[in-house]
């Protein structure tokens, strides 16, 4: 199963990004082979529709779950229809490696 995490940087010590569409990086973590992929968000500076473009990008990557600080109004119904699980982490001090540790439970 592939899980996307929003990140402020491209290291394991980076903090989780509080926004989804305009986050700096996506970390795509594969729970089966423990592989990690850091993906710069091409829609960070987009004037509009950054969220829906980011969803399309992650759907292409076959992501089943998304961990983010928050999701926008338009994104929630979109992900609901796509059957992608949303996980909202309200703690902005959480690092990527801590989240991956939690995911490995």
């Amino acid at each position: 199963m592939k899980i996307a995490i929003t990140s402020t940087g491209n290291t394991l010590e980076s903090l989780i990004d509080s926004s989804f569409g305009r986050c700096s990086w996506f970390v795509i973590y594969d729970t089966e082979n423990k592989a990690m992929e850091f993906l710069p968000n091409p829609f960070k500076e987009a004037a509009e529709a950054s969220g829906s473009s980011a969803v399309q990008l992650l759907v292409q990557k076959k992501v089943n779950k998304i961990v983010a600080g928050d999701f926008g109004m338009k994104i929630k119904p979109m992900l609901d229809s796509l059957r992608i699980q949303m996980i909202v982490v309200k703690d902005p001090q959480l690092q990527i490696n801590q989240i991956i540790e939690l995911l490995n439970h």
């Binding site: 609901d80 992608i84 949303m86 909202v88 309200k90 703690d91 939690l102």
Partner: peptide
């Protein structure tokens, strides 16, 4: 336990 919110898509 981890103070997160999540939905059930299925």
């Amino acid at each position: 336990s981890c103070k997160c919110y999540f939905n059930n898509p299925d």
